[in-house]
Design a protein around this nucleic acid. Structure first.
Lengths: 338, 338
DNA sequence: CTTGGCACTCAGTGCCAGGGAGTGCCAGCA
DNA sequence: TGCTGGCACTCCCTGGCACTGAGTGCCAAG
């Protein structure tokens, strides 16, 4: 159905449209790309591509514009990812090296990504549920109030204050601390429920229910969905692409404020440690129907995700390259600092 | 210079312009407001108001628009703050009551403020330096690595991991913990340096330098500028006012991403526990020169700030009322939960 | 000091014609 | 069968033009 030349035409249309922001016509294509055929032939091909739904015209006597499916085909079969230049890679490296703690790493990453791609960057904090536990600290603030602090290998530190129904003396707390650390050290937080159950079993019978309750609360509050966090940067870049969004960037900004939704989108990315691209209406979010999301997980265990959101008319090869590179660097930095 | 009637004219211009978004002319003023004089008289007044710099015309043969100084005069002398309706107050109360922890309080507050005012809301986390210390916990994670956790009465919990040069055994750490808690309990974090010095003095001489170093690092890292945080909501509302910003909302969005700057602006607000209004070029930030900031501190001790950022052409009486009300409620909630 | 009248300015709108980019279709050619 | 050049057609965009209407500044009279 689509022979080699028609694919070339589609590629040329996407590339030209991305750079010029204007519908591209057959004559311009014949001039700017060496397709070896006349405009008339290209017109025939374009008519067919339009029938197949890959391109469309804004109005009768205008050039063609890629559709979502057109971009999809381009990304899947026609684009070759643009690797970053050596200088760019070096800049990324040194910029991220300078980070002092996890907050700083995430902040730098998201700003970097926004700056490199010129679009909106999204970075998720390393997910606690996928991180390994490095240390658990339990402190009795008062006889019936405990503070639990969990430190992950990725550097996240989360704490909760729990009220318990039974007085717990210091030695019991100390024992609990030791047992918990023994049980969960190096484990994924998602494995904690099982480990916690075992710990409760091993404690003296009179405190067992209290301990079980503590552990349950602890696991729930630390490993819950609510603990995922994302950070954004570069929303100002949206205003530069204002014309790319039908009407207004308002719905886009609204969608970006819903961090829960962003987290879901990032999480839905398919293959681990590979860049995923979701285009226009492929994103199941109203306000983002004219944007694309280029995302990837980072870290060896896919401990978090990051991505870039921009208009569907974006430079996919470049953006994919940037996202991939940044994800790699962040993963490396996190491993070094753990 | 400005008699009563001219002030009324200015007030009428501001009110009309805020609602209609269009330059207002003498005839319209005479019709919509009962000023008791003819359009011609109003024209004379307007000419004078323009000479004084309170209003301006976008072009000849257009109506008048308030200038920054015009708004300033309006806010200072002409506006009567619009208190929220009973229903609104009730809604605020119940919405904020539902919060489960500090993060939740802040999140709900900022969303509420954005929703009520229809503009961009900014809420600063309770400042650690102005909070009282409720509890300090020191935990030896390994002989040379300590974790320090500080809990404030406002519910903020901050932790740091410190590496120390000397081995500290458990009993020393325990003693340190007790002494610190004794010394700083109920004190403002800003008073900690003094308290810390006294603690170091009282420790055994061989660990004294190490302890002093720990305390110094601790105070510095916890009470430093870097620890202030702000949260935004309602940036999407900016797009609705797009036409109010010359050119683009891009510089505004950019400025909003600079949290450090926002913090500075919030902190500069003058009178404590009173609503401060800064209009247009009064804000020393390039990108915000066509916006106004209505802000207030909250909490009895002015422990944090919150505010609203919108176009200079905003409903000042309503916004001031909303900011004041929300600040009061947040303060109350924080006290209840402390 | 206020008021009505009057001339003037100028943004905004609707209309129209011309130019241009682009398309679809068709007939001819390899 | 597929490519190509030619041609008529569509429709957006631009610029010019006249017109309207809101609004102003000024002035003379009350």
């Amino acid at each position: 159905m689509l022979d080699e030349r028609k694919l070339s035409v589609l590629r040329a249309i996407v590339e030209d449209y991305v750079t010029t922001r204007e519908p591209v016509g057959s004559k311009a294509l014949a001039e700017r790309h060496s397709l070896g055929v006349s405009p008339a032939t290209i017109r025939n091909d374009m008519a067919l591509l339009e029938d197949e739904g890959y391109i469309t015209q804004p109005h009768t006597s205008a050039g063609r514009v890629p559709t979502d499916t057109g971009y999809r085909l381009f990304v899947d079969r026609l684009a070759t990812i643009k690797p970053l230049s050596a200088a760019e890679r070096r800049a990324i490296g040194t910029f991220l090296e300078g980070a002092v703690d996890l907050d700083d790493i995430v902040l730098r990453t998201v700003r970097l990504l926004a700056q490199v791609t010129g679009q909106v960057a999204v970075v998720q904090y390393p997910s606690l549920t996928r991180s390994q536990v490095r240390h658990v600290e339990i402190v009795a603030m008062s006889p019936r109030r405990l503070m639990v602090v969990v430190i992950s290998t990725t550097g996240r530190v989360e704490q909760r204050v729990l009220d318990v129904a039974v007085d717990l003396d210091d030695s019991t707390v100390a024992e609990l601390r030791n047992r918990i650390n023994e049980a969960v050290d190096g484990k994924l937080l998602s494995e904690m429920p099982d480990a916690a159950a075992a710990v409760a079993e091993a404690m003296p019978v009179e405190v067992r229910p209290a301990v079980a309750a503590i552990l349950a609360t602890m696991v729930e509050s630390l490993a819950g969905e609510g603990e995922e966090r994302v950070v954004l940067a570069g929303t100002a870049n949206l205003a530069l692409f204002g014309t790319d969004f039908p009407g207004s960037i308002q719905p886009v900004l609204e969608a970006l404020e819903e961090h829960v939704i962003l987290l879901r989108l990032l999480g839905e990315a398919t293959a681990p440690s590979q860049v995923s691209v979701r285009i226009g209406h492929e994103l199941p979010v109203e306000g983002l129907s004219s944007t694309s999301l280029v995302s990837s997980s980072y870290g060896a265990t896919g401990v978090g995700h990051l991505g870039v959101i921009g208009p569907t008319r974006m430079d996919y090869p470049g953006t994919i390259g940037a996202v991939r590179a940044v994800a790699q660097y962040v993963g490396r930095i996190l491993e070094e600092s753990s």
